[in-house]
Simulated assay, not measured.
Amino acid sequence: MENRIKTEDNVSTVLVMQFVLLGFSDFPNLQGLLFALFFLIYMIILIGNSLIIIVSRLDTALQKPMYFFLANFSFLEICFVSVTVPRILKNLWTQDRSISKLECATQIYFLHMLGATECFLLVVMAYDRYVAICNPLHYPLVMNHKKCIRLSLGAWLIGIPVQIGQISQVFSLPFCNSNQINHFFCDIPPMFNVACGDTSINELCVFIAAVLFVMIPFLLILGSYVKIISTIFKLPSATGRSKAFSTCSSHVIVVVLFFGSVTITYLKPKSNHSAGSDKMLSLLYTVVTPIFNPMIYSLRNKDVIAAVKKLLLKKTV
């Protein structure tokens, strides 16, 4: 849908009200294969993360703060991937890549709101490991159930007001002449490429938001793990050190994958952005991290493996 407006020079300009997500349009012969691949990935993410939520709720051995946050994280990953992948599947299946301005704004809002939640939930999970390893005697008192709920709720709510303001600012820009977004889904950096006029203020706001919601959480996590690692090296038992490293290393892998790709996407200058690299990076933090989450936490955690085996044996008996 397009509306025509008059510029100062009395020239008619098309005001874009609907966008086209180009996505994988460069590969017309691979649409069916790509649909099957993304559908399989989506099912693995849903099943794997749902399994973690179920076992953490049902198994009494997993009624601990670490698994409470892990269940939250798994639910978040399901929500996060559901913002983008169903739309990608629809576009691949129907070959109709159009998306309205309202749908585009909604997708960006939930993508960034849930992304902010993930950043701070990873901070909470790092804090939990810090208390458990560096102050084990105080752990049950510090990480009580009420505090766990407050920390989790804070992570879920912290990005809501900021992202409302940021999305309102981005979509106050006029989008004219071109309505083609060279991306799999609506996101802020690609939107600047189809916006008219000066976007420097908007880009500065995105940079500030990225510092607040990406760099600060990353530094908090880094500080937690510096203290955790120094404490681990002081443990007298080699078995204790191995168990502590095993518990923390899975969290570190998720942090590196997520923060690395998000940092490059939102903190590098606009001049260094290319459609190809942005697409690959977006797939890394929207698809790869959610699919690795259940694998990393399940395969590296004996308690989770035991709980899954127990649940599956109950189902087969």
Rank of each mutant, 00 (worst) to 15 (best):
L281V: 07
K310I: 08
L62Q: 02
K64M: 09
V170T: 15
A238D: 13
L40W: 08
D187R: 04
I149M: 11
F233Q: 12
V214H: 10
C104I: 01
I133R: 01
Y109G: 01
Q163N: 14
A238N: 10
L222S: 11
A132M: 12
Q107D: 04
F245P: 03
V288Q: 07
A209I: 09
A105V: 05
N293I: 11
S178T: 14
F245Y: 15
K314T: 11
L51F: 12
M280D: 14
Y109T: 02
Y297P: 04
D187N: 08
N3S: 13
A209G: 11
Y42M: 05
I44E: 11
L62Y: 07
F120K: 01
L58P: 05
N177E: 13
S200H: 12
G32L: 12
A132K: 11
W156M: 15
L204E: 15
I232Q: 04
V288H: 07
C248D: 02
C148S: 09
V206C: 03
N272R: 14
L37S: 09
S237D: 03
M191A: 04
P86Y: 00
Y297D: 06
L219D: 00
D26K: 15
F35G: 06
H273P: 03
I47Q: 03
S261R: 03
L121K: 00
A105M: 08
Q166D: 13
F80N: 02
P269V: 01
K243W: 09
S261I: 06
N179K: 03
N72Q: 08
A116F: 07
I181Q: 05
F120M: 06
Q169N: 14
L311N: 00
L283N: 02
N29I: 13
I41G: 04
S178P: 08
R4D: 15
S152K: 05
F75W: 08
A307F: 07
T106W: 15
C119K: 03
Y285I: 02
L111Q: 08
F171A: 03
D59K: 00
F68Y: 15
C148N: 08
C186S: 05
A195W: 06
L62M: 11
L235F: 10
K90F: 12
V81L: 02
L219V: 08
R97D: 11
Q18R: 12
V142E: 00
L219Q: 02
M17W: 12
Q107T: 08
Y297M: 13
P269C: 06
A307G: 01
A307V: 09
I232T: 02
S298I: 14
F258R: 03
F39G: 11
